[in-house]
Amino acid sequence: MDQIIRIGMDTSKHFFQLHGVDAAERPVLRRKLRRNEVLAFFAKLPPTVIGIEACGAGHYWARELRKLGHEVKLMAPQHVKAYIKRNKNDGRDAEGLCEAMSRPTMQFVSVKTEEQQAALMLIGVRQQLIARRTQLGNAIRGYATEFGLITAKGLDKLEPLLARIAQEERLPELAREMFAAHGREYARLQAELKAIEARLMAWYRANADSRRLAKIPGIGPIGATALVMKAPDPRLFPSGRHFAAWIGLTPKDHSTAGKTRIGKITRAGDEMLRSVLVAGATAVIQQARKSRGRASPWLLALLARKSPKLAAVALANKIARIAWKLLVTGESYDGARMPDASALAA
């Protein structure tokens, strides 16, 4: 077999498709492997460059193949799609991966360590618990409404509602039993959520970058921890604008023939980080509208010409740029520079 300089590997649950080329870009390897054959095959292969999509288990395979001496490059699936020919199949997917990784402008995803992925589980489990708590709270309110028991919105109103239901003797016994079961489930979720958040706060206190980011208005401990955990090496981004675009805080651009057409932000990027930053920016705007004397002149000028929702996205974009600057330079946040345009770290 000729010397293989690059291999594209299309992964799946059971079968992995390989496509390798030599120095002349001629295909010299087309092979399908079972999952349990992959490591044994690459252990016998001279060190080479392997391209994998950054999808499920992608980071695991990157770590394992690196242990065998290979260089592994992870790519976002949307960046690989343009290199896949018509009539999609596993072979063409592997060929597209092999071609995409050869492009000089291709952007690669940093391989996460096991410790990083374990830390990310904290954020993921917290989101799942919050979603289940919201679902359960809505169910309790909905069932209670059927019996004429209405309460105001808010998590702090649920426990008084459950206590009121427990004392409501006119309710059928079966309904009271079901409400009691919901109440026990809600209490369990609250306890689990507090335990997870305690672990997150411990991680936050132990991480210097998280503590520095939390000093930025609009970023709290949870947002700072999520930024450090989920964002790749900030030095991979040429500027703060690219970092904000990676999160998904830049508008859709569909410009041609010298005409600029800027749309709204899309679902591209990291949804969790985007929602956290926009929520934090919304809180900053609410405070600014209450106390205009202490608000940033830049923010007041923005609110004068944009709606609060658009201003929140713009401020979230600015916060992301400041966060990138602090992560790259190791500096601490200086509130005195907030009105200055240099704080954008463009």
Score class of each variant (00 low, 15 high):
residue 326 L to C: 11
residue 248 G to K: 02
residue 260 T to C: 08
residue 86 R to V: 09
residue 81 K to M: 13
residue 119 A to I: 11
residue 118 A to I: 01
residue 22 D to A: 09
residue 179 F to G: 00
residue 185 E to V: 10
residue 11 T to H: 07
residue 56 G to T: 13
residue 228 V to A: 05
residue 159 E to C: 03
residue 281 A to V: 07
residue 100 A to I: 10
residue 149 L to C: 12
residue 51 G to P: 07
residue 283 A to C: 08
residue 163 A to K: 13
residue 282 T to S: 03
residue 160 P to C: 09
residue 168 E to H: 07
residue 165 I to F: 02
residue 313 V to H: 04
residue 57 A to M: 11
residue 36 N to H: 15
residue 181 A to E: 15
residue 139 A to W: 12
residue 16 F to T: 02
residue 58 G to N: 00
residue 192 E to M: 06
residue 75 M to H: 12
residue 146 E to G: 03
residue 92 R to M: 03
residue 96 G to H: 09
residue 6 R to I: 00
residue 232 P to K: 11
residue 142 G to R: 07
residue 166 A to M: 07
residue 332 S to M: 05
residue 278 V to C: 05
residue 221 P to V: 00
residue 158 L to G: 08
residue 306 K to M: 07
residue 113 T to K: 05
residue 114 E to A: 11
residue 147 F to I: 04
residue 301 A to N: 14
residue 242 H to P: 02
residue 334 D to F: 01
residue 5 I to D: 00
residue 185 E to C: 09
residue 96 G to Y: 06
residue 258 G to I: 07
residue 172 P to G: 01
residue 90 D to Q: 03
residue 181 A to D: 15
residue 73 K to Q: 12
residue 57 A to T: 14
residue 176 R to L: 15
residue 323 A to L: 02
residue 166 A to V: 06
residue 300 L to C: 06
residue 344 L to D: 01
residue 249 L to C: 11
residue 32 K to P: 06
residue 126 R to I: 04
residue 282 T to P: 01
residue 52 I to G: 00
residue 324 W to K: 08
residue 49 V to H: 14
residue 296 S to D: 09
residue 141 R to S: 05
residue 11 T to G: 00
residue 313 V to Y: 09
residue 112 K to V: 12
residue 225 T to M: 04
residue 191 A to W: 10
residue 35 R to F: 09
residue 100 A to E: 03
residue 20 G to H: 12
